[in-house]
């Protein structure tokens, strides 16, 4: 039984296969039936840069989350984190592939032809060519830091991706529509832990507050836009993250309040609130990204002709 598309083998529409599974699998290709033509009249390189940034955010965050495998405090929590990482990896794959369609010039030169665009972008770019925000690349702290980063990241990303469902690029809109319920769950997961830790013991409260204080200096950057991607926003392909800031702050204010973590900003450093530079979106990263990529890319780079 040869099928070109893995989803075809698993969808309920394949009636002759339906009885093979104890449960209806019902998997769906998120891009099935979506018109993949490029948006007309849009600045495609700018659109590609915008999409690339959102894809890189998901890819690097997925890698950081997957580093918790075998390190999480509970087995159940470990699987939950792996699920979130896989959700983000799926988003990254679709977004990187679309970025390369929007601007084939993004694909790194010299990568073997059979390597898909998304793999070429993930494994054969240097840290300076990555466009993720710095929030996702900084090294791990403790579990409180993990929860704080996930809360901030998913709250921010949900606001952006929710608006992206109205993108003029039908593929980007479809990826966003698939991602919204995923990220809503991630945010819920992180908010749940924020409440448990913040409103838990003295020690858990202290660590949760410390985690939030540690990630806060990286928050301002989330709402910046690189000049190179600005036309994509004007074209209606992308979303200006600055438009989501009020919503972001409102959610964090409420979660912090319920978690007895005090009024917003009470223990947060000022630079998180200052007008920020588009660091990661212009390729300026912390040294941690280079280390992360060295590990993530090692196998693909050791076997550049490999087929997986």
């Amino acid at each position: 039984m040869a099928v070109d598309n893995a989803y075809e083998a698993l969808t309920e529409d394949s009636r002759d296969l339906g009885d093979r599974w104890a449960y209806g699998t019902g998997f769906q290709d998120p891009l099935s039936g979506v018109d993949a033509t490029l948006p007309t009249g849009a600045d495609l390189p700018a659109a590609a840069r915008h999409v690339l940034g959102l894809g890189d955010d998901a890819l690097v965050m997925a890698h950081r989350l997957s580093e918790w495998c075998t390190h999480a405090p509970e087995l159940e929590e470990e699987v939950a984190l792996a699920n979130i990482a896989l959700d983000l990896l799926g988003q990254a794959r679709l977004l990187l592939a679309r970025a390369a369609q929007l601007d084939p010039g993004l694909r790194p030169a010299g990568v073997a032809g059979h390597v898909p665009d998304e793999d070429a972008l993930a494994f054969f770019r240097s840290a300076e060519e990555y466009r993720n925000v710095r929030l996702v690349e900084v090294p791990h702290g403790d579990f409180g830091h993990l929860v704080a980063r996930l809360l901030v990241f998913s709250t921010w990303r949900l606001g952006v991706v929710d608006r992206l469902t109205g993108s003029r690029d039908p593929v980007v809109a479809a990826v966003a529509a698939k991602a919204v319920p995923e990220i809503a769950y991630h945010r819920d997961h992180a908010a749940g832990w924020t409440l448990r830790l913040g409103d838990g013991t003295d020690e858990s409260h202290r660590r949760m507050a410390r985690g939030l204080a540690e990630v806060w200096p990286l928050v301002g950057e989330l709402f910046t836009t690189a000049d190179a991607e600005r036309p994509a926003i004007a074209d209606g392909v992308g979303v200006d993250p600055a438009t989501t800031r009020a919503e972001f702050e409102d959610v964090l204010r409420r979660v912090r309040g319920q978690a007895t973590l005090g009024p917003p900003g009470a223990d947060l450093r000022r630079d998180g609130d200052a007008p920020a530079t588009a660091w990661g979106r212009t390729g300026r990263h912390t040294a941690a990204l280079r280390d992360l990529l060295a590990e993530m890319q090692s196998v693909a780079r050791a076997h550049p002709e490999g087929r997986w």
């Binding site: 580093e67 999480a72 702290g141 403790d142 448990r196 830790l197 013991t201 660590r207």
Partner: peptide, 17 residues
């Protein structure tokens, strides 16, 4: 310093739940 290995200090999940 913040550990680079996740899970160091992962006992943060111990909320005394």
């Amino acid at each position: 310093a913040r550990a680079t290995t996740p899970g160091d200090g992962g006992a943060g999940a111990d909320t005394g739940a």
